[in-house]
Design a protein around this nucleic acid. Structure first.
Length: 471
RNA sequence: GCUCCCUUCGUCUAGCGGUAAGGACGCGGCCCUCUCAAGGCUGAAACACGGGUUCGAUUCCCGUAGGGAGCGCCA
């Protein structure tokens, strides 16, 4: 039988990294087994759900390439179905209307807590079927009083709950909308979901869901409860830990493959392998191999992986993202070398596309700032003559290639009896303004002849002025 | 408070009764080298604790401790 999994976020905020891991595992399970992946938006809480959140979630999924075969389904479109199901349960005696007021319930809870009991609904409306004036009833599931429920979870193993500890949960609100529990159970059944893969914050809820399925006469899906992702300090992942909107990672210059690769290794592994293409993940993943223990989010490793992907990607595949980043940092890509050449030069030197863009700024502007420390250290009178003759050599160099540039520099160095580095570093500072860049021949080539000559001139002026000032 | 879940280097993890407890990120050192990276080599770094079971426990069982989740007309 073909499997069917789903990702069912509620649109009450953006799609953050923890939800993405859940979505990824669910998606991978479907893809690995050639099954179907369903996207469902759980928007029964009409107070907190927004259209913007739903759209942001879809956009995030799309950016990551987590494509869905069905949906997005919206629960708000299925209210009639839930109402019908609830009516059926009431008719069959598996659910009942509860006329308790909020005040009443609050009071009950307070007393229970005061007594040291578990706060739970005591079932006082189970036998009272007559309506109460002015109260719109909720519908509650009649939960068995005795016995146990067992969950055979794919990652947790067998988990057992005592029924007497569970109370009668609300399945329909006074306005007829379903609660989360009811919506999930009805939808998973109606949509034919075979594997429910979700965060382990739902493990405790699963006992209730099984009771609901029993009452409704539904089959039980297979469950797999994934451990949470925690922040670096071990507390629940939040914004300050990097639980950003996934689209924020795009903003910062991360590649979707890197984000997925990082997340797949949180709670899952395949021997010693660290880098997985999406195809490899699909081939190797099985949620049964997922770990049961929570893991902490480690931005350093994400950065490392992102760099791995930048280093190995085809330069042309990276240029759209790079051009986008250039726009964000104020670079006009038409004023310098083709972006893919920047990728070639900087791919091992940047952990994000944002960094890549920023480090290439000197290639797209006429005026570069000189780093004072680097200039002081490298632009000194001893190299003045060498730089002058290099300037001359560059003026006539044909063709303008890294090889030719290297040869010219070597010749000048030899003529002035300098080691290559003694001239390389001053040229680097002159041409980039800083002491750091790719190999100097490639750098000079990218800067171009015109700007190189102008910058060498500027460096010579700098040396003159310093000498004059020193007296 | 009650219920459920979790526990190997700082972090992600391998391990599935007998290992010098392996890899990766990060950190230190060395090599390469025109700088910075990348790369190569290398170092420090872990089985939470206590009982069992067993000839033998990181591995199986039970406690304890610590962490997490749930106990809503939120999802």
């Amino acid at each position: 039988m073909s499997i069917k999994t789903r990702f069912a976020p509620s649109p009450t905020g953006y799609l953050h990294i923890g939800s993405v891991r859940t979505a990824l595992f669910s998606w991978l399970q479907a893809r690995h087994y050639g099954g179907t992946f369903v996207l469902r938006i759980e928007d029964t809480d009409q107070e907190r759900s927004t259209r913007e959140s739903a759209d942001a979630i879809l956009a995030g999924m799309s950016w990551l390439g987590l494509n869905w075969d069905e949906g997005p389904h919206y629960q708000t479109e299925r209210f009639d179905r839930y109402a019908g199901l609830a009516e059926q349960l009431v008719a069959e005696g598996n659910a009942y209307r509860c006329y308790c007021t909020k005040e009443e319930l609050d009071e009950m809870r307070e007393q229970q807590v005061a007594r040291g009991d578990n706060p739970r609904y005591d079932g006082r409306c189970r036998e009272r079927s007559e309506p109460r004036e002015g109260v719109n009833p909720v519908v509650r599931l009649r939960t068995p009083d005795t016995g146990t429920v067992e969950i055979d979870d794919l990652v947790r193993g067998r988990v057992t709950y005592e029924n007497e500890l569970l109370d009668d949960l609300v399945i329909l609100r006074p306005d007829g909308t379903p609660t989360f529990h009811f919506g999930v159970v009805a939808d998973d059944a109606d949509m034919g979901i075979t594997h429910v893969i979700r965060g382990d914050d739902h493990l405790n809820n699963t006992a209730r869901h099984i009771h609901l399925q029993n009452a409704l006469g539904f089959d039980h899906p297979v469950y797999a409860h994934l451990p949470m992702i925690l922040g670096e300090d071990g507390s629940r992942l939040s914004k300050r830990h990097g639980a950003l909107n996934v689209l924020e990672y795009r903003e910062q210059g991360y590649l979707p493959e890197a984000v997925l690769n990082y997340l797949v290794r949180l709670g899952w592994s395949h021997g010693d392998q660290e880098v997985f293409s999406v195809d490899e993940m699909i081939e190797l993943f099985d949620v049964e191999d997922a770990n049961a223990s929570a893991s902490k989010f480690n931005p350093e490793k994400l950065r490392w992986l992102n760099q791995q992907y930048i280093m190995t990607a085809a330069p042309l595949d990276l240029t759209p993202g790079l051009v986008e980043q250039m726009g964000k940092v104020g670079i006009d890509p038409s004023r310098g070398p083709a972006p893919q050449r920047v990728v070639e030069a900087y791919r091992e030197r940047a952990e994000t596309l944002r960094e890549l863009a920023m480090s290439a700024e000197y290639l797209y502007t006429d005026n570069i700032p000189l780093d004072e420390k680097a200039a002081k250290k490298n632009l000194r009178p001893v190299v003045k003559e060498a730089l002058t003759s290099l300037r001359d050599a560059f003026t006539e160099l044909e063709p303008w290639t890294a090889e030719g540039i290297h040869r010219a520099m070597q010749d000048v160095a030899d003529k002035h009896e300098l080691k290559f580095g003694k001239i390389g570093q001053p040229v680097r500072v002159a041409v980039t303004g800083t002491g750091v860049s790719p190999p100097i021949d490639a750098t000079v080539e990218l800067v171009g002849r015109e700007r190189t000559l102008a910058r060498l001139d500027a460096a010579l002026v700098y040396i003159e002025e310093r000498a004059a000032a020193a007296g």
